[in-house]
Design a protein around this nucleic acid. Structure first.
Lengths: 352, 352
DNA sequence: TTGTAGGCGTTATCAC
DNA sequence: GTGATAACGCCTACAA
């Protein structure tokens, strides 16, 4: 793994050519005679020439502005931002700039993208409504602004790649976990919103894993998901959850695919049912933590918000300014089983 | 987050000084009059000057050789090497060189370190015997060669930092998992080697979590751990495991802290006991995988071998050539609960 | 089709 | 104490 680094000048000298000729064939710009080209290519192949990135960035005055747009629960966004911050710290010295826009509605998101489109070299986007986002994604790409998606994909668009988790798979893992921890047969209540695309997939995977089990799945029941804007809930919501519990004495578990997990856990705890009813949910929101510690919530399936901030920027930057080749169209992030004892590794935790 | 980058020349012009003076105060070399120093420091503070890393590396001709030494099970080492490879690809263009030595014994490890000590600027080490490694670590540090540890720490030495997992915590997580999946009271058999430091910690954390539980812990029993050199085992080993099972009809689970997990799973499966006896172990070795998929092994607690290869090098390199400040002495890697359904995220999986 | 020359922002080595 | 000045390896005119 050690090797004196060879420079373009040295190659030029060796082959009795000028530096620019070498440069031309390496970066194939300008025209070069076929056999000098061959000669150079053979030689750089032989000596395994690797360009010096520092010199490259310096000479190019690399300057790359990446736009970021998302509309996500604020606590989740906060975790993503830590990853964004780290990669920015790492790469700004090499010319990375960021324009970050957080939307408060799907409509605003589209407006914000339009507004920034002339200032950016590429866009990293978590599209709230994939169907609607498709047209703007493709429009940007036609304008030669590459677009990648994260956290939520728009697979039908021409986005370069997606970086985020597989929500069906997330449901499968939750299913396996609930199967393992609920020993006796009984009912499992699913809490989900009809208009939540992500939640729908989480239910799909869950059902698939449990289809041959002795547990009976009931629901989905809808408890309003406040999207983290506030923790508001109504007495009606509470009564609704109580009703599910009271009407199903053999209820063994709640499977909650959205942030109403907080309220479900609260009600279960207050009814003193924590030892009879297991609860599994998703993602690590602050108000879930105490319930996990107390054993009201048994486990959470988490994505990697930090990575979702860090890697898309890093990969895209390297593609734009260092000709990194794209090896796959989908970077599927790990799904993690978070229990009480490993919780501290997932709550605002990262290495850099 | 956008900002035109200011250069030393611009600062010099602004303050009516030469570039070299600015350079002197920024990198505090050479002597500078107290008040010009103040003036410069105030100004760079005000405009938030950040040096251009590309120019720095180019001018410095950064060249940093980091040595790596470990003596670890080969399959585990293979996963670490992926991380090493990635960070090498990323940083070699900025001047990183690596010398990697894999030992086949604790003794050979020490020899290899001594052999490379004149060629390296820093050492990254997974010390097989922390006590013995202490003296060589401190010796290197006296010679101004920084040493960091990974995977296995030598906390009593003067190593810069440790990057790896907390093995007691790993035991705790395993304990919680086993508590959740074994519903009825019964016995849990611990399999561990007496001379295995890591295993000892895994047992310690495990016992702590289960101390108030209704489960009775038996053992530790010792099954020879072949360290992954081969999968050899003897009929005696098999009989020993069988005996534990036969003598304890109320055995609910095996807790295996080393690679003999393979043999335990094999015997449990062959005795047709997979539905009565749960099995929990550590790390993701190839020969565990089919048992996890079949449900013989219920779960594994995994470290992050990829990160253990990637990050120590990255952090150390940045410290050495970019004056990164060290924020902590211990980077504790995440412990992950790996079940059948999320297994595919942990077996040779990474983003870059 | 090929070569020359100057510059990118630092660092390092001289002089003054 | 301070200021020129020449690298570092690559890119980009511009000239031949």
């Amino acid at each position: 793994m050690e090797l004196k680094n060879i420079t373009i000048s040295e190659i030029a000298e060796e082959l009795d050519l000028s530096r620019s000729t070498i440069d031309r064939v390496i970066n194939n710009r300008g025209s070069v005679a076929e056999d000098t080209k061959r000669k150079v290519l053979d030689y750089i192949e032989k000596i395994n020439y690797k360009p010096n990135k520092a010199a490259m960035h310096l000479a190019k005055k690399t300057n790359c502005t990446i736009g970021l747009s998302y509309y996500l629960p604020e606590k989740f966004a906060a975790q993503i931002k830590t990853g964004i911050k780290d990669v920015y710290e790492e790469l700004k010295a090499y010319g990375l700039n960021l324009i970050i826009k957080e939307a408060n509605s799907a409509k605003e998101q589209i407006e914000q993208i339009k507004e920034m489109q002339n200032k950016i070299d590429a866009l990293i986007l978590s599209p709230w409504e994939p169907k609607k986002a498709k047209s703007i994604i493709n429009e940007l790409i036609r304008k030669n602004i590459p677009v990648v998606t994260f956290n939520r994909d728009a697979p039908e668009s021409n986005r370069l790649f997606y970086f985020g988790c597989d929500y069906i798979d997330a449901g499968r893992i939750a299913g396996e976990l609930i199967k393992k921890i609920t020993s006796e047969p009984g009912k499992i209540a699913v809490i989900s919103n009809k208009d939540d695309l992500v939640g729908k997939k989480r239910v799909e995977g869950f059902r698939d894993v449990l289809k041959d089990s002795s547990q009976q799945i009931i629901g989905p029941y809808t408890v309003y998901d406040h999207f983290g804007i506030n923790d508001a809930y109504t007495q009606k919501d509470i009564n609704y959850i109580k009703k599910i519990i009271n009407e199903n004495p053999d209820l063994k578990a709640f499977y909650v695919v959205n942030q109403s997990l907080y309220l479900v856990a609260k009600v279960v705890k207050e009814m003193g049912k924590k030892n009879q009813i297991n609860i599994i949910g998703f993602d690590l929101f602050d108000n879930f933590i105490s319930f996990l510690k107390e054993g009201v919530i048994d486990g959470l399936i988490c994505q990697e918000p930090y990575s979702q901030g860090y890697f898309p920027i890093k990969i895209l930057f390297e593609m734009l300014v260092e000709d990194r080749e794209l090896k796959k169209k989908e970077f599927i992030t790990r799904l993690q089983v978070v229990l009480k004892e490993n919780l501290h590794y997932y709550h605002n935790y990262h290495y850099l």
